[in-house]
Amino acid sequence: MNKINPQDLIDKNPIFESMFAPLYFKASETLRSDAIITDTKAVEMIDLLDHDFSYFNKNTSGQFLVSVRTKILDSQIVEFINKTENPVIVNLGAGLDTRFSRMNSDKIKFWYDIDLHEAIEFRRKFYSDTEKHTSIGKSVLDYSWIDDIEKDASYNYLFIAEGLLMYLHEDEIKNLLREINNNFPSSIMICEVFHTKLVNYHVKNKAKNKDISFTWGISDTDDLKLLHSDIIVEDEWNMFDYHKNRQKIFVRLLVRLSPKFRNMVKLVKIRFNKNNNG
């Protein structure tokens, strides 16, 4: 297969560069002797890209956090698939996520990867749609994607919002949660959330020398309940509670001394409990 140059995509919009960071981190992590995760598809995809992403190597904390969240999410999704009849997975803001390749379960009824049209077109260089696995090229805020999801009363839905919500505004998140709640009652979402201390934190875009800012965060998990009355928080995982042997000494010290730092990045599992007031 010929090498694929992503530069045109990256030049279109700084946000697209953020798709390649987790892919590169997962590939790099896989090659470590003490790897937290194994993602051979990510290694394969990075090898096919005609681009030097080595500038991501400086972000060791990013690689650690992506690896930990990937391990936790994979575990939770496998558990959902194994324990649920007719599981349907909807991956919001999927980018170049490789998770479907790792699941390898015949139990999955449908799997949808949703992202902006340009992102999905690039994604299709590596993945072709199948009857079970479909990519949808729409913004997660363009709720016409809901019409593209197979619906049946016997299906059980799990939504993934990984590396997404921190780029949205609170009103957009409220609307997203409302639409999911109204159309997929009793579904589950596992979402990555940042602390409010990270709002306005700038991520440098190398290609265009522009910054991408995080626009939303919470100070406490209970804040999620303020976004929609029908949300039930079922579980949460603080990233810095895991694989402490891979954390820098000053990070471990900050986690021990500061609850706010410990809560900077976490995954939260919520259940939608649609009532008559929907």
Rank of each mutant, 00 (worst) to 15 (best):
I89N: 03
E179L: 06
N205P: 02
W145L: 09
F20P: 07
D115I: 01
D211Q: 11
S258W: 09
K132E: 14
A35G: 07
N86G: 04
N275A: 08
I160S: 06
K269M: 09
W216Q: 06
Q7F: 11
K71I: 01
Q76C: 12
D113F: 00
D147T: 13
K151C: 09
T40R: 13
F25L: 09
I108T: 04
R271F: 04
L168S: 02
R124E: 14
R256P: 00
R102C: 09
E131S: 14
A161Q: 06
A207G: 01
L49P: 09
G163K: 04
L23H: 08
E150N: 11
N182K: 02
H133L: 06
L267H: 04
D115K: 07
N175D: 13
S128E: 08
S186C: 10
S229P: 00
E179K: 14
T130D: 12
D230T: 14
K225S: 13
D8L: 14
F240M: 06
T98Q: 08
K109V: 03
L177E: 02
L168Q: 11
D106R: 05
G95W: 00
K125F: 07
I173Y: 05
I46S: 08
Y155N: 15
F80I: 10
A94F: 01
I173W: 07
N2L: 12
Y24M: 12
Q76W: 09
V203K: 10
R32V: 05
E44S: 15
G137Q: 05
L49W: 06
D129A: 13
H243V: 00
M264G: 01
W111D: 03
Q76T: 00
S105L: 02
R99Y: 07
L31V: 00
K206F: 12
R123E: 03
R123I: 06
E162V: 04
S75T: 11
D8S: 15
E162L: 04
S229N: 15
A94Y: 01
K248F: 14
K107W: 06
N2F: 10
N277M: 10
S144K: 11
V88R: 05
G62S: 10
N156S: 15
V90M: 04
D230E: 15
K125H: 14
S135A: 14
F126G: 08
D47T: 09
L96S: 03
D8H: 11
V251P: 00
K107H: 11
E150Q: 13
D11L: 15
E179Y: 09
I15Y: 08
L257V: 05
Y242I: 00
K244F: 00
D222Y: 08
D235W: 12
S28F: 04
S128K: 13
H243M: 10
D74C: 03
T40K: 15
F261D: 04
S54I: 03
S101C: 12
Y24R: 02
M239A: 11
N175R: 11
F184S: 10
A119L: 05
Y155I: 06
L96V: 07
F80K: 01
T196C: 05
K174I: 02
V268E: 03
I72M: 04
S128L: 13
T196H: 02
E85P: 05
I149L: 09
I173S: 03
S187R: 01
L141E: 08
T134D: 02
T70P: 01
Q247S: 08
W145G: 09
K210H: 06
N13S: 14
N91T: 03
E118V: 02
T221P: 01
S128P: 00
I146D: 11
F53T: 10
D97G: 09
F53D: 05
D11K: 15
A21K: 08
V265Q: 04
